[in-house]
Design a protein around this nucleic acid. Structure first.
Length: 528
RNA sequence: GCGCCCGUAGCUCAGCUGGAUAGAGCAUUGGUUUCCGGUGCCAAGGGCCACAGGUUCGAAUCCUGUCGGGCGUACCA
């Protein structure tokens, strides 16, 4: 809708146009402060410029009214235009809000270490990435989802060690000396029990078997993580194994050396990341010749760029923010544009239950597990809370609030509006598709305000994706649902002369709510 | 110390590419006409937009500094 208005304005104005929504919708559907900026260039009074523009624009068929007010130009769309657009949307439900762009994006998210179940912090990044991908794909980007599996290194060894020791202690009943660092939690004991069964007791007799146990345990954890994700409807297109990347280390290292990106000091190899804005240079090869974790990430990003996407997005936990500079430095050394890599940080999550801090699960090793919260409030509510906030601010929420079945729970509120439409049709004994051809032009101003609001969905989605502010979608859905509830209260629908037109309007609202929820990975209810 | 994020209503948060009277939900208080689902609707109270400067026609928004909170500051992933 906005694009269409924009195009029309461009015909009349030879100046960069900013189109915004008016402070007060009574002013119109769109507004532009264009006269202010033109005034500067033309050295004329903005009020006058606005007046003249308004007069010219008023002749456009698409607009019902164009007004100049205090220098702003306020535009009101015509009823016919809105009705036609709604009719098209209803007839082409799956195309509503779809855009074309074609930019390819590789979106990496979650990428949690396969050393345990996902906790609530991971859940935030997971939901956020999933929805970013859904919306982006809908508005026309070509997005692929990737999980970088950290299946190499010390953490995996620690996992194996923990399972090995837990097996010796809890299953075999041997005395065990625990090191300072190991994974704890009941899941490790469960894992040990299964490992003894699957691999045999003899593997727990000697430390040399730890790598084998590690490998086995890592696979089980990856299964568990995928199961956690599947429970909330999150899937990936690609999994990239860190371990498999090291085969290419020699080749990549040579490339770095050729680019003058590394140097040797104190028996180690360092990446000159300071040349590209990092605070200090970073070790990529240890004294004993083993590459560091950064090396893996360098190879990973090298091959990402090799795969040739237009843009790359990584969603990382905020505690990794210090890592951004060094990875970008490596990308720059390979001659790629580091701007193509965008890092979205997902901040910490704190949970309350009934006003008190949520009890951490001992069996999980003092983490709050994603699966526990899903069990408690359901996947939809979990998705929704994460999506009502920006990703880079700390988030605190109370699980009790999300269990309520009243208007304090936005999902119920939105679903209720959607279900209401279906119950109206049932009551009226009509089918939505039979009313697509009905004209809505005779409806009152409030009806058209509602219709306009419903038709905003496509631009909300586009804006939310481009600005990476997914809370704009949840905000919009709450707003639209609220508007519909109010409209419903103020207007009798069934049995009035405008019944068909009002039902069609309701269908349009339902379509936007349904499509919006779908973008969030939530299925709209038709009955509650 | 340094780096990143944050500081807006009692609470949780929007608004931040500068623009018209700073918003929402929750919580609180009051109301809701024998009405298509009261899981709804209406209304009220509640704000030195952390603080101090600066930039300009205009600042919650941009810049600088201060204070407060979180995270990071590994040859761990």
């Amino acid at each position: 809708m906005k694009h269409r208005v924009y195009e029309v304005l461009q015909k009349h104005i030879d100046h960069p146009i900013v189109l915004e929504k008016p402070k007060d919708r009574n002013f119109g559907h769109y507004a532009t402060p264009i006269a202010f900026s033109m005034a500067k260039v033309l050295r004329r009074n903005p009020m006058q410029i606005a007046e003249e523009l308004a007069e010219k624009l008023a002749e456009e068929e698409m607009f019902e009214k164009v007004e100049a007010l205090k220098g702003y130009v306020n535009i009101k769309l015509s009823r016919k235009f809105l009705d036609d657009y709604a009719t098209w949307a209803l007839k082409n439900e799956s195309a509503f809000g779809k855009g074309e762009n074609g930019t390819s994006i590789l979106l990496e998210f979650v990428s949690a270490n396969p050393t345990g179940p996902l906790h609530i912090g991971h859940a935030r990044g997971a939901v956020w990435g999933d929805v970013l991908a859904r919306i982006g794909s809908h508005v026309g980007y070509k997005i692929e989802r990737e999980y970088y599996v950290n299946d190499a290194g010390n953490q995996i060894y620690l996992l194996g060690l923990s399972v090995y020791l837990a097996g010796r202690e809890s299953v075999l009943g041997l005395d065990v000396e625990w090191p300072e660092e190991y994974y704890r939690g009941e899941y490790i004991v469960d894992l040990a029990r299964r490992a003894v069964e699957a691999l045999g007791r003899e593997k727990f007799m000697d430390e040399s078997f730890i790598p084998e146990i590690s490998e086995w345990a890592k696979d089980r954890m990856l299964e568990l993580i995928n199961q956690n994700l599947a429970e909330v409807g999150i899937f990936f297109d690609h999994y990239v194994s860190e371990k498999s990347l090291y085969d290419r280390w020699d080749e990549i290292f040579t490339k770095l050396a050729e680019a003058g990106a590394v140097y040797e000091k104190d028996g180690k190899w360092w990446l000159k990341s300071t040349e590209h804005g990092d605070e200090k240079d970073r070790v990529v090869v240890r004294e004993d010749g083993r590459p560091t974790y950064l090396a893996g990430d360098i190879i990973y990003h090298y091959q990402k760029f090799e795969r040739g996407y237009d843009h790359y997005i990584n969603i990382w936990g905020a505690d990794h923010h210090g890592y951004i500079a060094r990875v970008k430095a490596a990308i720059a050394f390979f001659g790629h544009d580091p701007q193509k890599l965008e890092i979205i940080l997902s901040q910490m999550v704190s949970l309350l239950k009934g006003g008190e801090p949520y009890k951490m699960s001992k069996r999980a090793g003092n983490f709050i597990l994603m699966q526990d919260i899903v069990k408690e409030i359901g996947p939809d509510a979990l998705r929704f809370v994460f999506l009502t906030k920006k990703s880079d601010t700390h988030l605190e929420f109370d699980v009790e609030d999300l269990k309520k079945e009243d208007n304090s729970n936005p999902i119920y509120y939105i679903n209720y509006a959607h279900a209401r439409v279906f119950s109206l049709y049932e009551k009226a004994g009509k089918r939505p598709e039979d009313l697509f051809g009905v004209s809505m032009e005779g409806l009152d101003g409030e009806a058209f305000d509602l219709l306009f609001a419903a038709l905003l969905l496509p631009e909300v989605l586009e804006d939310a994706f481009k600005s990476r502010q997914l809370q704009k979608v949840t905000d919009y859905l709450k707003y639209l649902a609220g508007m519909y509830h109010k409209f419903y209260y103020d207007h009798r629908i069934i049995g009035t002369p405008n019944e068909d037109a009002l039902l069609k309007l309701s269908s349009m609202v339902a379509l936007s709510l349904r499509t919006g929820l779908k973008m969030l990975g939530i299925t709209a209810l038709t009955k509650m």
